[in-house]
Every structure is written in structure tokens, then in C-alpha cells.
């Protein structure tokens, strides 16, 4: 780098307008380019990129305008481009660029694609306080996996759970319990990924029991459409088989089920 360039670069680096442009660019690069390449990460959905960029933009606008001197400097290049005769070419390019950008965004919004539109769905349906399982009433509130009361028999329950999983759940939820079974790409929403810290790791076993037993059709009225392809497993599995497969899920993933809060009186 030749030395006369350095002061010019410094001038740009210290100018609030170019600082603002730089921060926005950097933030965009981090969100869109860096986050996805981190180990175990994935692309950031457009909705989240937009949300992050708006937040950063608000922060940048606060930074450039919370001080009179900085605010005046920030506006200088904008005013210059808008009014100075010597910047006629730049002005034309900016006007054309902004117009083209708006056109592109509009085109992107109305263009037809084969992809299904983004779905604003909630992932945590609220469980009922009690359910009926093949005619028997089961109170879910405060309920824990009854098989855990027999620690000596746990290996046999786990073996049973493993059998049930591989016979019934594997095609969708996958060999790694990560929701990547060979049927998975055909579903939207995708089958639950049990390895994720946001699924069974956050739930009580009674919640998981309810989801397995009642499947997609048993989801509550609010928040519809659920579009879940999960079958109603109470039609095919016994109560013990469902509790066994739940034991297997937690044992295989290493997560501990959420426990119930005890009230002051010691009740659950």
C-alpha cells in the first residue's frame, strides 16, 4: 500500500457515514456468511437475517445521530450526492441503483416458486391436563414415566423401547433419532429431531407420551393447521410400549426429561 493512500483510508474509516456502511456490511457478512460455516451450524433463514439487520440498522442510526457533530458529518455525503453538481454521475448511479434494488425486491416478492410459503407455526402445542388412553383416563399433570419406578427392569424396558422405535419410528425420525429418516424429506413440518436441545430435552415425559399416543390428529384446536403426519400410536401400541420407547429416546440422546415443579406443600 502506498503511503498517500493511508490518510485517505483513515479519513473514510473515521467518517461516520462510511463507518455506518462498514458496520452494516460487516453484520451482513457475519450473519449470512460466517454463522452458517460455524461447526454444526446451518444457513440463517431470511426472516431472521432481516430481523437482525433491522436491529443493527437501528443501532447504527442511533450511533450516528446521538451526537450533533457526528450527525452533521454523517449527513454530509448524503447531502452532497443529492445536490452537488460535480456528483451528477454518482447521483444518477445511486438513483438508478435504488430503483433497481426496489424493483429486484418487488420481483423477488411476487416471483412464483415451487417452494411452499414460509409457515408461521408454533412448535409447542399446549397439552391437556388429562387424556383418555383406550378408554382409561390418564392425568398428565405431575405424571412421570411409571417404568422408572422399577430400576432393575430398566434394561428390559429399554430393549423393548428400542424394538418399538426400530419397528415404528425409524422411517421418519431416523437411525440417529435426528428426524432424518428416509421418509423425512416428504414431510413439512419435518419429523422431530430428538437430538436437538429444543425438543424432548425441554419436555416432560408425560408431554411426550401425549404426543406419541395422540399424534397429529390429537393436537389442540388452537394454532391449527398443524399439518403433522404423526400417527395416533394408541391405536397400534400399548401404554407400556409407549413409555418404553420414551425411555429409549432419552437414554439414546442423553437428555434428561423435564421434571415437575414441586409446590410449597410438596405436591407436584
Amino acid at each position: 500500500m502506498s503511503s498517500p493512500l493511508r490518510p485517505a483510508i483513515r479519513r473514510y474509516a473515521e467518517h461516520p457515514f462510511w463507518q455506518a456502511v462498514g458496520i452494516l456490511l460487516l453484520a451482513y457478512i457475519v450473519v449470512v456468511g460466517v454463522v452458517p460455516i460455524l461447526p454444526g451450524s446451518a444457513i440463517v433463514p431470511k426472516s431472521v437475517v432481516l430481523q437482525y439487520m433491522i436491529t443493527v440498522l437501528v443501532g447504527v442510526l442511533i450511533y450516528v445521530s446521538d451526537n450533533e457533530e457526528r450527525w452533521r458529518q454523517f449527513k454530509e455525503p448524503i447531502q452532497a450526492v443529492l445536490v452537488e453538481p460535480r456528483l451528477k454521475v454518482v447521483r444518477a448511479v445511486v438513483v438508478a441503483g435504488v430503483t433497481a434494488l426496489v424493483g429486484l425486491v418487488a420481483y423477488g416478492q411476487v416471483k412464483t416458486t415451487v417452494a411452499a410459503p414460509p409457515n408461521l407455526r408454533s412448535i409447542h402445542p399446549a397439552p391437556p391436563a388429562e387424556i383418555t388412553f383406550r378408554g382409561k383416563t390418564i392425568t398428565l399433570t405431575g405424571l412421570e414415566n411409571p417404568l422408572r419406578r422399577y430400576p432393575d427392569s430398566l434394561p428390559s424396558y429399554l430393549a423393548e423401547g428400542k424394538r418399538v422405535y426400530y419397528q415404528n419410528c425409524l422411517p421418519c425420525h431416523g437411525d440417529h433419532l435426528d428426524g432424518q429418516g428416509h421418509f423425512a424429506p416428504g414431510f413439512n413440518p419435518l419429523p422431530a429431531n430428538f437430538q436437538d436441545n429444543g425438543t424432548i430435552a425441554q419436555l416432560t415425559e408425560s408431554f411426550v407420551f401425549w404426543r406419541v399416543a395422540k399424534g397429529g390428529p390429537g393436537l389442540p384446536r388452537e394454532g391449527t393447521p398443524w399439518n403433522s403426519a404423526m400417527p395416533v400410536w394408541e391405536d397400534f401400541l400399548t401404554e407400556r410400549e409407549i413409555w418404553s420407547v420414551i425411555l429409549f429416546l432419552y437414554e439414546q440422546t442423553g437428555w434428561t426429561p423435564r421434571t415437575w415443579e414441586k409446590s410449597v406443600s410438596g405436591e407436584k
Binding site: V35, S41, A42, V44, I123, G179
Partner: peptide
Amino acid sequence: MGGSHHPFLG
């Protein structure tokens, strides 16, 4: 992402 939870930002 393998679902609606982002594996990193989640």
C-alpha cells in the same frame, strides 16, 4: 436447519 430450530442460533 433440520427443523424449525436453528442448530446454532437456536
